[in-house]
Structure formats: structure tokens, C-alpha cells
């Protein structure tokens, strides 16, 4: 069944009341940015953008932020973005962590099992300058050395709001 895209079934984007403490730019941003993101995802990806995450050696804070994207505060699925279980379903490969030697082959395997066209993005400073673990014997360096990385999301870890923002920037460019 094809659901016509009318005003009525556009999910109204609500966020929790802005922060209870301190000033916050995040909450308001997400409402606006998320709305825009949804529009671009609707247009370019036919309403669904599937992301496959691979942790290539992170400290797990990056993963925690990504899993919080699905929590009610952000609920990224309402913008048409879903983290999928199989690389075969994915449009985007998202890599976090500093690409250890041991994860090198698994990351390649995931990339190769994704259907074309596909995009690679990286998140977290571990994939950028990597000031903490860069010199180690078991680190292969950022994924950009081997894979065509379309975008890098900065931050240690990048906050959920920043991830949504970056995805918007990315889809706008497509």
C-alpha cells in the first residue's frame, strides 16, 4: 500500500521541553534540523535512509551516543533514518573507533557486502586526528586511508544532536 504523503501524516516533530538546567542549543536545533533532515531523506532516499554502524575500536561512548539516537529524546527513526542489522540493507556505513588491526578485515567485509550505491561516514575524534590512540602498534589509522569517506563527524564523542546535524549536512549535499 502506498501512503500518500499529505500534511496529515507528516509526523509532527516534538521534543522534550528544553533543558531543565543550563542553556542548551541542542533541543531546539533537533526539532528544526530533524524536520529539514526528514525532507531531504524523503526526497533523495524515498523516505528511508538505512545506516549500518561498525565499531572499529571505540571506547564505547560513541556507540552509547548513537544508541541514544533511538531514544525518545531524539527518536531518529521519525526522520526516516534507521540503524539496520544487515549491511545488505544499508545505504550508509558509519564507522566509529580508531580502526584496530583486528577489526580491519571485518570492516572491509561489511563494506564489501553493502550494495551500491553506498556512502561511508566516520564519527568521533578516534577517526579524525586521533590524539589519544593514534601512535599505537595496533591502530591502522582512520578509515579514510582505505575507504572513500564522504563525511567525518567531529567530537569525542559527537553528541546526538551533532550527529543529526551532520546527517542533514550530508544529505543536503547529495
Amino acid at each position: 500500500m502506498k501512503i500518500p504523503f499529505t500534511k496529515k501524516n507528516i509526523i509532527e516533530i516534538k521534543t522534550e521541553p528544553a533543558e531543565k538546567f543550563g542553556k542548551d542549543e541542542g533541543a531546539f536545533d533537533i526539532r528544526i534540523k530533524g524536520g529539514e533532515l526528514k525532507k531531504t531523506v524523503d526526497k533523495i532516499f524515498g523516505r528511508s535512509l538505512f545506516v549500518r554502524l561498525v565499531d572499529s575500536g571505540s571506547c564505547n561512548a560513541c556507540e552509547n551516543e548513537l544508541s541514544l539516537l533511538a531514544s525518545p529524546y531524539y527518536d531518529i527513526e521519525r526522520f526516516g533514518i534507521k540503524f539496520v542489522a544487515s549491511p545488505r540493507h544499508a545505504d550508509i556505513l558509519l564507522i566509529t573507533g580508531c580502526m584496530t588491526r583486528n577489526m580491519f578485515n571485518p570492516v572491509w567485509n561489511v563494506y564489501n557486502s553493502m550494495p551500491d550505491p553506498k556512502l561511508v561516514i566516520t564519527a568521533g575524534d578516534c577517526q579524525g586526528e586521533n590524539p589519544y590512540f593514534g601512535e599505537s602498534y595496533s591502530i591502522m589509522g582512520p578509515a579514510g586511508k582505505w575507504l572513500p569517506v564522504a563525511m567525518h563527524i567531529k567530537g569525542c564523542p559527537p553528541e546526538p544532536g551533532a550527529i543529526i546535524h551532520s546527517l542533514l549536512e550530508l544529505t543536503k549535499k547529495l
Binding site: 565499531d55 572499529s56 575500536g57 571505540s58 573507533g97 580508531c98 584496530t100 588491526r101 583486528n102 577489526m103 571485518p106 590512540f133 601512535e135 599505537s136 602498534y137 595496533s138 591502530i139
Partner: peptide, 10 residues
């Protein structure tokens, strides 16, 4: 140990 980053050596 897929994510072994060699922290002790670092």
C-alpha cells in the same frame, strides 16, 4: 579483543 588498541604500551 577485536578492539585491542594497545593502551598499556601507549
Amino acid at each position: 579483543f577485536w578492539k585491542h588498541r594497545g593502551i598499556e604500551k601507549l
